[in-house]
Design a protein around this nucleic acid. Structure first.
Length: 591
DNA sequence: TGTTTGCATGGAA
DNA sequence: TTTCCATGCAAAC
């Protein structure tokens, strides 16, 4: 082996009679080490102890071989053992970079989180804290620079160790393009902070999830992963962004349940629909917390003489008591008048699934004069957990958009004109009255401008587009995408057709309705052709599949670790470790 | 004979 | 293709 400079950071000797082969270098070949016997012996000892224990020693041995400084940030890194291999990058030029500096451009926070995950055996010391602060500041500064020039610090940092890989890639241009977009996305995430929880419904959540998926890939791979992020980003932009213009709070908007075992899977048609005003009143009038669960439009068989209300399976399993026997159990539910009904909540096997029903609802139906098309609503009063039911007559329950996934009630809907209906019994207004103690629920929730007798002929189905506004129960976060400032909401759209609302830097508002043929028609060529759209959709599906697989792998890995840990600690597992997927609810169904 | 119960079927998503 | 669910229907009561 040809000599040079010893790559041992504590040696750097250039004259040695004999050179030893060291660790493999990222590009090619191996590090060169002088024949310092003591160093080699020390190295072997570290390898043995660290490898066998799979932990770092908790004492910081600044003078000992094996601890080296990151060439970028100066943090001390433990080298040479298998446990440390994921925390540093060996450089061709000698020296090491911590993963933080390696991936900081595209992953400003993940490396920090990862570091502390891996190093959780030792408590954070001053060095760690300083390192974290320094990185955060550095990243902020770097991202504050509009786009870091190739000669700039950020670029240098980005390429500090991945230079050869990225530059040699034929997809380098693609990486550069994706970098631009990712910068915008990262900007958003900066405001969310290190502890932001991942929420798959949000743009930031998507990014956070993406980061968690694969933290050890190269920066270039990070760039490519944006291709997978993009379809979801587009979907979210298309589905989740709405106007924040002046609101008409009396629109009955479908709201996804705020809690429950299935909240993300519940079909929008079962989302409780309630006006902002009703929501506020419920909160104000009640000392308890009212949790809106779900609602259902009564079918002919639900309202028929058979007296069975078919419950959406997901809702029944999520919000009603767990039942293991088809006979089920009696369920007490209080209606809006304060009267308590007892129904039999049960199920029967159906194909490979189950059908859940409430039996004995005929008296209740008759009492409320309910018929097919009316809506029954279910809520829960916490902390007592009391179930409440409300009703909405069909005359007050018309969705504006037939093709909408997100139905909205705006009072009576006749032809193309909106009307209110003061005589109707709203499920939630009735609930409010019930909470107030009133015996006769009345509805005085709509202001004059959409009340009956004050019909505004200008409000048509098309004009309703102008009524779009963000949900009052969520705070938007701001996302910067391609020079557009976009408000992002955790909630899916709550109003009719999907819309995109964009605020330019000029503060000029622009609103798109995806299903509106008039507003969607454009003489300009599409920015994205059908092939590209199809490609994005396929990429999205592929990403979803990979994400599920990765989650499964992580679960298995975690279980393996726990088993090893338990065995190491001499704890007899006895097969008591929970199997993947097992849960307390597994005995819920008999079929 | 009318009602209830338990399950099957098929359309829709 | 799978799952959900509205409804039909036959057996039991």
């Amino acid at each position: 082996m040809e000599g040079g400079v010893c790559m041992n950071g504590n040696c750097t000797s250039s004259n040695s009679a004999e050179w030893k082969k060291g660790w493999p270098l990222p590009a090619s070949g191996f590090a060169t080490l002088c024949s310092n016997r003591e160093y080699i012996k020390m190295k072997m000892w570290e390898l043995r102890t660290a490898y066998s224990d799979l932990v770092f020693c908790e004492t910081f041995h600044s003078e000992e071989t094996g601890w080296r400084e990151c060439t970028s940030c100066g943090k001390y890194l433990h080298c040479g053992c298998i446990a440390s291999s994921t925390l540093l990058e060996l450089l061709d030029t000698g020296g090491v970079n911590c993963t933080g500096c390696n991936y900081s451009f595209l992953q400003p926070f993940t490396h920090l989180e990862e570091k502390h995950k891996v190093c959780d055996l030792s408590t954070e010391n001053d060095t760690d804290r300083n390192f974290r602060r320094m990185n955060a500041n550095m990243i902020s500064r770097k991202l504050d620079n509009d786009l870091v020039s190739p000669e700039g610090i950020g670029y240098k940092l980005l390429l500090s160790s991945n230079q050869s890989r990225i530059r040699s890639s034929k997809n380098y241009d693609m990486f550069q393009q994706s970098r631009s977009l990712h910068k915008s996305l990262v900007d958003t995430n900066l405001s969310i902070g290190l502890s932001a929880s991942s929420n798959s419904n949000t743009l930031a959540g998507v990014i956070a999830e993406e980061r968690q998926l694969n933290t050890a890939v190269s920066s270039f791979q990070q760039g490519c992963r944006l291709c997978h992020v993009l379809p979801r980003v587009l979907a979210i932009l298309a589905a989740g962004l709405e106007s924040n213009s002046s609101s008409i709070t009396q629109l009955r908007v479908a709201r996804p349940p705020v809690e429950g075992r299935i909240k993300s899977q519940l079909l929008p048609r079962y989302w409780p629909r309630i006006t902002d005003q009703e929501l506020q009143q419920i909160s104000a009038e009640s000392n308890s917390t009212i949790v809106l669960l779900f609602e259902k439009v009564l079918s002919a068989s639900d309202a028929g003489r058979i007296g069975r209300l078919v419950l959406p399976k997901a809702c029944a399993e999520a919000y009603f008591p767990l039942i293991s026997q088809p006979e089920g159990l009696p369920l007490r539910i209080q209606d809006v008048k304060g009267k308590e009904w007892v129904f039999q909540f049960r199920f029967w096997p159906n194909n490979n699934s189950s059908m859940y029903v409430l039996e004995g609802i005929t008296p209740c139906n008759q009492s409320m004069q309910l018929q097919a098309g009316d809506t029954i609503t279910f809520s829960r009063m916490d902390p007592k957990g009391k179930l409440l039911m409300g009703f909405r007559k069909a005359s007050n329950n018309v969705s504006i958009h037939k093709d909408s996934h997100y139905p909205v009630d705006v009072g009576d809907f006749q032809g193309d004109t909106l009307m209110g209906n003061a005589e109707s019994l709203s499920g939630y207004s009735g609930l409010i009255q019930s909470l107030k103690g009133s015996k006769s629920p009345s509805m005085d929730l709509f202001p004059n401008h959409i009340y009956p007798g004050n019909i505004n002929p200008q409000i048509t189905e098309k004009n309703v587009q102008n009524l779009l506004r963000p949900s009052p129960i969520v705070k938007p976060s701001t996302v910067l995408v391609e020079d557009h400032e976009i408000e992002e909401f955790d909630e899916p759209p709550v109003f009719g057709k999907r819309s995109i609302f964009i605020v330019h830097f000029s503060r000029e508002h622009e609103q798109f309705n995806i299903n509106d043929p008039v507003r969607c028609s454009c003489f300009a060529p599409d920015e994205m052709d059908s092939w590209e759209l199809d490609y994005l959709v396929r990429m999205h599906k592929d990403f979803t599949k990979r994400r599920k697989l990765t989650s499964l792998k992580l679960v298995h890995r975690q279980e393996s670790r726990e088993k090893i840990k338990a065995q190491t600690n001499g704890v007899a597992t006895g097969g008591n470790l929970s199997e993947p997927g097992s849960s307390s609810g597994d005995n819920h169904k008999t079929s």
